[in-house]
Each structure stands twice: as structure tokens, then as C-alpha cells.
Design a protein around this nucleic acid. Structure first.
Lengths: 147, 147
DNA sequence: TTAATTGCAAATGGTTTGCATCCCC
DNA sequence: GGGGATGCAAACCATTTGCAATTAA
């Protein structure tokens, strides 16, 4: 969905700062945090305040347009919510995030929750990882062109 | 393990504040945060500073004696680490925490990580829940004595 | 004795908020 | 024109840190 309809749909004014923040958000595939977003946004329009970034993020989260994640205890990181639920691998060596989904894990969670007398509201599975040594070797080989 | 051996084992001085903080920690089954811990500790000795609570918590986490969790985006909460790994249900209605463990989910995680070329360093599965309506009724009935 | 530990207060980092101004609808 | 949105700076909250005084070993 484009930015104009997004604002219309949620009764938000399409202002200059908002247009830019949403555009940057739409282009980001890397779960940026508010400060990183602020950096990207002010590269386009340096007059935008970080308060506006936080306000927009909060607004979009409330409307269900964005998902907010808190990995480890760093700053909150955001991604658009227009996708099926998924979980995250966080590469502890560089902070990179890889998404994954397991229907089987989802199903097991439901089952266990029900057995405990709970209904699931939401959940998060964060797996902190490190590349397997074999992967590291494969990557080195790839980069070096087979050395 | 008692507090004295714990300190000896990790080369920590057994000071008054530490003795009290560890004692309170040992008695807590509810994953308290630092500020809550500070409240409990200063009830016993009002001269203890919150900085000492944070420092002790950090120390014990480093030594692997405590586990630190960040649920949603509230303050960090702690529990002793002298147990098998488990995951958490967080009751969104009151913040209560219930522990659970699924070997099957653990196994699936390993499997999926490996398939992605990762080795797991650690992980966290937090399931935000609400009591099932049937549980709520059962509880009311229990409290009212069968009303 | 003396290095580790503490209390205090100031600093930090991420995030939110009050308020006067601004500018979409 | 008017109310929502913004920029700015100050406030906030959880947490950390510098430093001089204290204390366990």
C-alpha cells in the first residue's frame, strides 16, 4: 500500500516529514532503530526532528502498520507489519537480522499455551546466533573466488 | 548453593549489601526488576544504594548466576540461573510470569538454525498471554467457593 | 594494609512531552 | 481558519559511572 492511501486510511495528515519518514521506512529491509531512521531521514531533510521520528513510529505502531522489537536490551527496532508473522535470528557478531518462520513451532506454542490455560496475545522468538564455522569457510572461499 | 560459597567461588567479597541483595534474590520467585529489588532490599537495610543493586545484579549476571530478561520494553527483570533453560508466559493483564519448557521447540530451533547456517548462542521465547475465558470462570468459581 | 566495594550525585542513552509555531485539509 | 503536526528543549526513566570514603580479607 502506498503512503497516500496509508495516511488516508488511518486519518493521518500527509505532511512533509511523514512522507519522508514513511518512504525511508518502506525502503528499509534491515529493522532500523529510531536513531538510525533519524539519520536516514535527516539526510533527505535535515530539518526533521528526532521527536517527529519517534512520534511517527509510535503512531504507525499503534495503527498496526509497524512492528516494534526489542532485541537484547538495545534500542527498539522497527519493521513493517504487512507480512505473515515470523521470528528472528540475530547475528551476535554484527547485529544482522534474518527472518524465519516455523509453522510447527507456532502450532506447538498454541498447544502449550492452551494446556497452561492461556490464550496467546502475541509472542516473540529471538534466536541469537553465530554463523556455523562451515558457513564462515564457505563465505571466505566465495569472497576469495575459491582460494 | 549458599551465599557464602557463591561469593567465595566467584572471588567476591561478602559485604553487608551483597549479603542482603543475594538473600532477597534467593527468596524471589517472581522475576523482579532492579527497582523492585531495591525496594525489597532497602526494607531490610535502608542505607543500600540503588547503584549497588545494579552493580550486584550486573556482576551476578556476568558470573552466570543470574539471568536477565527484557520483556516487552519494560525494565530488565532477573531470575536465578540455577535451573534448566525455560521460556516464559507473560500474563498481559498483570505482568505475572509463568515458566514453561518444550524440548520439542528447543529441538526445532536447533534444526532450523542449522538449516540457515547458524549455531545458536542463546534464545528467548516470550509468549504474551491472557487467561482463557474458561480459566477465568474456574478461578471465579474457586474464589467464590462455587458461586 | 589495601584493593575491592559502597553511597552519592552527576552523567548517560533512549524515548517522551509541553509548548509555541506551523501548515495540511 | 482551525486543529493536527512539528521543532525545540526540557523532562523522564532505567541504568551507569566518577570519585572519595568505607570495609572485608
Amino acid at each position: 500500500m502506498d503512503i497516500i492511501s496509508l495516511c488516508k486510511e488511518h486519518g493521518l495528515r500527509l505532511t512533509g516529514p511523514r512522507r519522508i519518514i514513511m518512504q525511508v521506512l518502506a525502503e528499509s529491509r534491515d529493522h532500523p532503530d529510531a536513531v538510525e531512521l533519524f539519520r536516514r531521514v535527516t539526510k533527505i531533510d535535515p530539518s526533521i526532528a528526532i521527536a517527529t521520528v519517534y512520534r511517527t513510529l509510535h503512531l504507525l505502531e499503534e495503527k498496526g502498520v509497524l512492528e516494534k522489537h526489542t532485541f537484547a536490551d538495545g534500542p527498539a527496532r522497527f519493521e513493517s507489519a504487512d507480512h505473515q508473522h515470523h521470528d528472528h535470528f540475530i547475528n551476535v557478531e554484527n547485529g544482522d537480522i534474518v527472518e524465519f518462520r516455523s509453522d510447527e513451532i507456532e502450532r506447538l506454542q498454541e498447544e502449550i499455551a492452551r494446556a497452561h490455560g492461556f490464550a496467546i496475545v502475541s509472542h516473540r522468538l529471538d534466536i541469537y546466533v553465530r554463523p556455523l564455522e562451515s558457513e564462515r569457510i564457505a563465505k571466505r572461499r566465495g569472497k576469495a573466488g575459491g582460494g
